[in-house]
Design a protein around this nucleic acid. Structure first.
Length: 210
DNA sequence: CGGTCGATGATT
DNA sequence: ATCATCGACCGC
C-alpha cells in the first residue's frame, strides 16, 4: 500500500517518501531552537495548496535564539511583525524581506522565548520542479506568503512531517548568512545543512581568518 | 553589486 | 500622522 500524506485530504505517489509519514507535533517544536534546527534537516515541508501538494525535503536551516541573539528579529523587542515569533511553538513566523521576498520560520521553545528556525533550502519531492535554495526561493516555490503568518504548523494546511528515510549522515554547522551586523552573534555556528547536499543555498565559505 | 518596497523607529 | 533608514535576499 502506497504511503499517503494526510489521508482524507489527498494522497500522492510517494516516490521520494519512505514508509509511514507523520506530522511533527507541538512537542517537537517546544524545545530550544538550537536543538530543533538540526532535527528539522531531512524532514518534509508540506503545503496542501488548492492545486495540490507541494513537498520539499529540508536540507538547510538557521537557528535564531531569541532577544539576546542580535541577529534575531526578536532582539528588537515585541512589534507587530514579531508577534508570532514570540508566540507559542509550532507556528509559522513569516516575514517580508527587501520588499519582495518572503521567509518562513518555525517558532520554537516555550511561548515568549522569541526563538525560531529559518527554513533555507529544500530538495524537491513533489510539486516542485527543482531545488529551492535560499529562503526567498523556498517560499516562492512552496507558495508561502504573509497569508501564512502565524499559521499553526501542527494543522493540515502547512506542516512538517517525518518519514522513515534515514537521518542525514552528516550535518555541517557554519555561521548564519546575511547577519554580519550582529557582532559576536554573526560568527556563531547556527546554520545547519546536510553535508555535501547540492541543494544548499551556498557552500560554506572559506575558513574565517581573523 | 544594486534593485525594490514594506516594516520600523524616530519624530511631529 | 509622516519620514528616512534598512534589510535573516536575489540575479546579474
Amino acid at each position: 500500500m502506497p504511503a499517503t500524506i494526510n489521508p482524507g485530504k489527498f494522497s500522492l505517489p510517494a516516490d521520494a517518501i519512505q514508509g509511514e509519514c507523520r506530522r511533527l507535533d507541538r512537542a517537537f517544536y517546544d524545545r530550544p531552537a538550537i536543538t530543533v534546527a538540526p532535527d528539522l534537516l531531512g524532514r518534509l515541508l508540506i503545503h496542501a495548496t488548492p492545486e495540490g501538494p507541494r513537498i520539499g525535503r529540508i536540507v538547510e536551516v538557521e537557528a535564531y535564539l531569541g532577544p539576546t541573539d542580535l541577529a534575531a528579529h526578536t532582539s528588537r523587542g515585541r512589534t507587530a511583525r514579531t508577534r508570532a515569533m514570540f508566540g507559542p511553538p509550532g507556528h509559522a513566523y513569516v516575514y517580508l524581506i527587501y520588499g519582495m521576498y518572503h521567509c518562513i520560520n518555525a517558532v520554537t521553545g516555550p511561548e515568549g522565548s522569541g526563538t525560531a528556525v529559518l527554513l533555507r533550502a529544500l530538495a524537491p519531492v513533489s510539486g516542485l520542479d527543482k531545488a529551492a535554495n535560499g529562503p526567498g526561493r523556498l517560499c516562492k516555490a512552496m507558495d508561502i506568503t504573509l497569508d501564512h503568518y502565524g499559521i499553526d504548523l501542527c494543522s493540515d494546511t502547512l506542516w512538517i512531517a517525518e518519514d522513515e528515510s534515514p537521518r542525514p549522515a552528516s550535518i555541517v554547522a557554519s555561521p548564519r548568512i546575511g547577519v554580519d551586523y550582529a557582532g559576536e552573534w554573526a560568527d556563531k555556528p547556527l546554520r545547519f545543512h546536510v553535508d555535501g547536499h547540492p541543494a544548499v543555498s551556498r557552500r560554506p565559505g572559506k575558513k574565517r581568518t581573523r
